[in-house]
């Protein structure tokens, strides 16, 4: 098993955190994992992204230009990364602030209003990243949901139970979002 995921958005949307949650959950399951942020020169308001590789065997390259899944939190990220998903791979797009659809016809694109879902479920759109993570989990199912929940609880421990609960709720909302709104590859 080899799963390569890019998580991309504005700086501040929590895409690096999202990647760390994935990598932590993989480590928790005894899998190999790597997390690599983009650290090149970026302008303010530009894109932040990271790539997470999860595997049941030793990981070679921590980078890929044919990813299994890409989580797109904003429009510049869609433009920058939609070409980096392999044919038949997964795109998860935050419809709240991405007004366009992917130009790719050979991938499975899923759209959800992550900011709105986060605001409705957890009173803050700050957890839109975890909503997207929930959506990713419901589509790819590479890791166990329990491990991701444990990673959330562990990562937000220093911020208190309220923050943990809000993020667990965001994760659940994201997981359900695509189930209740079946707008998959046909869209």
């Amino acid at each position: 098993m080899l799963e390569q995921t890019v998580l991309a958005g504005f700086g501040g949307q929590g895409v690096l955190m999202m990647g760390k949650l994935l990598a932590s959950a993989a480590m928790d399951e005894g899998l190999y994992a790597s997390w690599l942020p983009s650290y090149g020169p970026e302008m303010r308001g530009g894109t932040a992204n990271c790539i997470v590789v999860v595997s049941d065997e030793e990981i070679g390259s921590p980078v890929s230009d044919a990813c299994d899944a890409i989580v797109v939190m904003n429009q510049p990220s869609l433009e920058k990364f939609e070409s980096k998903v392999r044919p038949d791979g997964t795109l998860i797009i935050n419809k709240s602030i991405v007004p366009v659809e992917t130009t790719r016809k050979d991938v499975n694109a899923h759209y959800l209003e992550a900011d709105d879902i986060a605001e409705k479920n957890c009173d803050a759109n700050r957890s839109a990243n975890v909503v997207m993570l929930g959506a990713l989990q419901s589509v790819r199912q590479i890791l166990k949901s329990d491990s991701v929940r444990r990673a959330i609880a562990c990562s937000f421990k220093s911020k208190g139970q309220q923050v943990i609960d809000a993020n667990l709720a965001a994760f659940a909302a994201g997981t359900n979002a695509l189930r209740t709104e079946p707008i998959g590859p046909t869209r």
Binding site: K20, S34, L36, Y39, I59, P62
Partner: peptide, 10 residues
Amino acid sequence: DGVLGAMMEP
């Protein structure tokens, strides 16, 4: 190198 410095792994 820069990748090994920036990347996270268990």
